[in-house]
Design a protein around this nucleic acid. Structure first.
Length: 803
RNA sequence: GCGGAUAUGGCGGAACUGGCAGACGCGCUGGACUUAGAAUCCAGUCCGAGAGGGUGCAGGUUCGAUUCCUGUUAUCCGCACCA
């Protein structure tokens, strides 16, 4: 055995051996475990130490499961459609396929450096024809089920990407990808009816072992609210305006109404006097970008000249049009209760509209309001609800109104349907054909995939047309139904399409008959542990849940949630900022692997901080784990031939180590696992030094425990200890808790809550006996004091309160 | 504006259900070994000479609070006129 820890040699050696003979083999006699990383986009700049973090974490979990006797699916692949490759193509006129392949080769090389147990036979790539065939197949099924539909509407448009965006991609009015301000553009687009699944997407969050934060973000995004729809007749008209409100209890306080500028009645109920102003206002609203509409805090609006009739008391409510009411939420029309809604209050003040209070705080008198009162209280001025609290009335009002035929109980969601088409080249073609006779026809399964054609110009247009639209030979086709001339749909799918189901494909990646066989899905899916960044909290994770539920409904899979457990690893920052090429603060793992070895870097990635928290990268910290591994090496070298019978001390040290590593690993607090290794290795070394040797099983336990974290050194040491088979076949050490029982304990002694002395006592002593010893030890400090109280927490602490 | 999270030495961070604050590591200081350095090893390292003080700040509950409660400040994240 080498006296020095030659990591380069060791790592090279075992990587080659594992390549020949993988430690993780399929074996149906074992239970399954599916541990998945969010697959990367193969970017040109490669991986940095931040990417490693999640991959190391998932690999530690996977290897741990292997040692515990599971067959583990731990696959890797490429989410390779997307804009960077396409933009690169525009700049250099290189086909995206070529640049993508080059990037994949580089990132794959880097991934090998991690020595994760990825099964490369199961590698997938969303841009493979055999893969996107099934992405299209799923779309075809959605189309048949009426979940894919076409609609013309004002959409989020990124002027830089020259492409529409889904709502999820345009939060804060900014393009999720490039950060440009999003504008509105009226376009005909393909939509997916994700709203049909709103209720299930919301309710099923309960059964997921996911971070609360992510569940909260999804449930906020779905945004369910309870309320009522109430009908207001328009005076001197046959029109009836339905409003949606969550506060039907305040109906008597409704002093005006507001329609969104896009509401269909606007034209008809605007009187001649206000016509011109209204046209101008609605035109302005239609051209306003979503950013402006959001940031313009000042309320604007125009009176229609018409009045709505309050169904409860017949009071007249002037009807206004204002852009603070959104067309696509609720009914696009609201009743306004300025006394109890901040926005309505502001609007009423600005346009001098009446304010009627219907709720006053418990025990207070009605007085003039300087702001809207939105809290609970007693209902007043409301014959139907008087005497109730607002809380009560809010709950009862929908039913009461329904009984009177004035409205109905309703729920609403903020979730909108998913804008699914993109005006770009490098994505899955939408498998539809437009036929002048048959209308929109889905491409039959036996003609899938609809392949991307070669183009000469990848450049997107400003008109909202895909570059594909310029290729006549591709666009012109025959109708699958009638055989007549027809045109292909030229939009492509968003990047999320391929990633919404890829976790299913890993179970059976080469299947040409189905997206995966029933048997393979049954064997592996759903994913037991999903590791990735928080940035997909609503986007990818919501879409993947939606796809899974759909595939469940059409009988493809028999579960309806894809990811049982989710873990979001924190980002790694450098100089207080996210690593990026443009900031020049990227730390590459390649040099660190060369200098310290893969095992050291793996362990250090886990040591930088709690895995779910963002951490600052500091190169010098890796010295600590490197020194630690050298210490382990030296320990094994020094004591492997000094085997002796187990002693009380060695048994305690060994089992305590197993117990601590095991429980910390189970809690996924990997930084404390690493510190635990350091702490308990030191204890083993102390015992070995004191005894002049140590039993072999203690050394072996350490080596096996280390294996998921630092596989190469562990495997090498395992063989040095005389084993012929892999450390990953050794079985996970079990803690014998009977060995943790001690007969002497140290009790800290406090006076008035401050520790003054420590005494060592037999663990079997009674309270009185311990107290007597304590008083003896504290005698000089207790002199002249009166003891007020004595507290003894058995085995933990003793406190004496004195005056 | 609303919602959520976080705050502990020079630094990263520990502390399980209220029970010895600062584990483990980095860095630093001193020493050993060396012609010298690197590496390694040993000792020390919250502040304070000491009594004592100390987990963002101000209170509270408790024998005892980093942990629970109230208020407050700062930072980060999510949503953003959703009626």
């Amino acid at each position: 055995m080498n006296s020095r820890y030659e990591f380069t040699e060791i790592e090279k050696k075992w990587r080659a051996i594992w390549e020949e003979n993988p430690i993780n083999k399929e074996d149906d006699s074992k239970p399954k475990y599916y541990c998945l990383d969010m697959f990367p986009y193969p970017s040109g700049s490669g991986l940095h130490v931040g990417h490693w973090r999640g991959y190391v974490l998932s690999d530690v979990i996977s290897r741990h499961k292997v040692i515990q006797g599971y067959q583990v699916l731990h696959p890797m692949g490429w989410d390779a459609f997307g804009l960077p490759a396409e933009n690169y193509a525009i700049k250099t006129n290189t086909h995206p396929e070529i640049s993508t392949a080059a990037n994949i080769a580089n990132v794959k090389r880097q991934l090998h450096e991690i020595s994760a147990i990825y099964d490369w036979d199961k590698e997938i790539n969303t841009t493979d024809k055999n893969y996107y065939k099934w992405t299209q197949w799923i779309f075809a099924r959605m189309f048949e089920k009426g979940l894919a539909y076409e609609k013309e509407m004002p959409l989020n448009w990124c002027p830089s990407c020259k492409c529409v965006l889904a709502n999820e991609e345009a939060t804060n009015g900014v393009c999720e990808r490039c950060g440009s301000q999003v504008t509105k553009k009226n376009l005909r687009q393909w939509m997916l009816k994700i709203t049909a699944y709103a209720e299930r997407l919301l309710n099923d969050l309960d059964k997921l072992d996911w971070p609360e934060k992510v569940k909260k973000m999804q449930s906020d995004w779905i945004g369910k609210s309870y309320g009522a729809e109430i009908e207001f007749k328009v005076k001197d008209s046959d029109k009836v305006i339905t409003v949606y409100t969550t506060r039907p209890d305040t109906l008597y306080g409704a002093t005006f109404m507001v329609l969104s500028p896009e509401h269909p009645f606007v034209k008809e109920i605007t009187t001649d006097e206000y016509k011109e102003a209204m046209e101008e206002y609605c035109y302005q609203a239609s051209t306003k970008s979503s950013v402006d509409r959001m940031t313009d805090k000042e309320k604007t609006g125009v009176f229609t000249g018409s009045y709505g009739i309050n169904p409860l008391n017949g009071a007249l409510a002037p009807i206004w049009v204002a852009d603070y009411v959104l067309a696509d939420y609720g009914t696009g029309a609201i009743m306004c209760v300025p006394a109890h809604d901040d926005r309505d209050f502001e609007f009423a003040k600005k346009f001098n509209l009446p304010i009627i209070q219907v709720i006053i705080p418990e025990g207070e008198e009605e007085k003039e309001l300087t702001e809207a009162y939105t809290g609970d209280g007693v209902i007043i001025n409301s014959p139907l609800f008087n005497g109730m609290t607002a809380f009560e009335a809010k709950a009862k009002a929908p039913m009461l109104l329904e009984e009177k035929g004035l409205g109905k109980k309703t729920v609403n969601y903020k979730l909108r349907d998913w804008v699914f088409s993109r005006q770009r080249y490098w994505g899955e073609p939408i498998p539809l054909v437009h036929c002048p006779h048959c209308g929109t026809v889905v491409v039959p399964d036996d003609q899938l995939p609809v392949e991307l054609p070669e183009v000469e110009n990848y450049k997107p247009t400003d008109t909202g047309e895909s570059p594909l639209a310029a290729i006549d030979s591709w666009v012109n086709t025959t109708c699958p139904k009638c055989g007549g001339p027809a045109k292909r749909e030229t939009n492509t799918m968003p990047q999320w399409a391929g990633s919404s189901w890829y976790f299913l494909r890993y179970t059976d990646p080469h299947n040409n008959e189905a997206l995966a066989s029933k048997e393979a899905l049954k064997k592996w899916a759903p994913v037991d542990m999903y590791v990735g960044g928080i940035e997909h909290a609503v986007l990818h994770l919501l879409y993947a849940r939606f796809y899974t539920k759909f595939l469940h409904d059409i009988g493809v899979v028999d579960f309806d949630e894809p990811f049982t457990k989710l873990f979001n690893q924190g980002m790694i920052n450098k100089d207080g900022a996210k690593m990026s090429k443009s900031k020049g603060n990227v730390v590459s793992p390649d040099e660190l692997v060369e200098k310290y070895g893969c095992d050291s870097l793996r362990m250090y990635e886990l040591f930088v901080g709690p895995p779910e928290v963002d951490s600052e990268w500091d190169d010098s910290g890796i010295d600590g784990v490197f020194r630690y591994l050298n210490k382990v090496w030296k320990f094994v070298e020094s004591y492997k031939d000094k085997d002796m019978a187990p002693t009380k001390d060695s048994e305690f040290a060994k089992n305590k180590m197993i117990y601590e590593i095991d429980s910390r690993l189970a809690a996924l607090t990997m930084n404390t696992v690493v510190s635990g290794f350091m702490e308990y290795t030191n204890k083993l070394i102390d015992v070995a030094k004191a005894q002049g040797g140590i039993d072999r099983s203690a050394i072996e336990a350490l080596v096996v425990l280390l294996a998921p974290f630092t596989p190469h050194i562990a495997e090498e040491l395992w063989h040095e200890l005389g084993h012929e088979t892999s450390v990953f076949e050794a079985g996970w050490p079990k803690c014998d808790e009977s060995k943790l029982v001690v007969d002497e304990i140290v009790i800290p002694l406090q006076i008035n809550g401050k520790v003054r002395e420590n005494i060592t006592v037999s663990a079997s002593l009674s309270k009185d006996e311990v107290m007597a010893k304590a008083k003896e030890a504290l005698a000089s400090r207790l002199e002249g004091k009166t003891i007020v109280k004595e507290i003894y927490v058995p085995g933990k602490i003793l406190n004496i309160v004195v005056k």
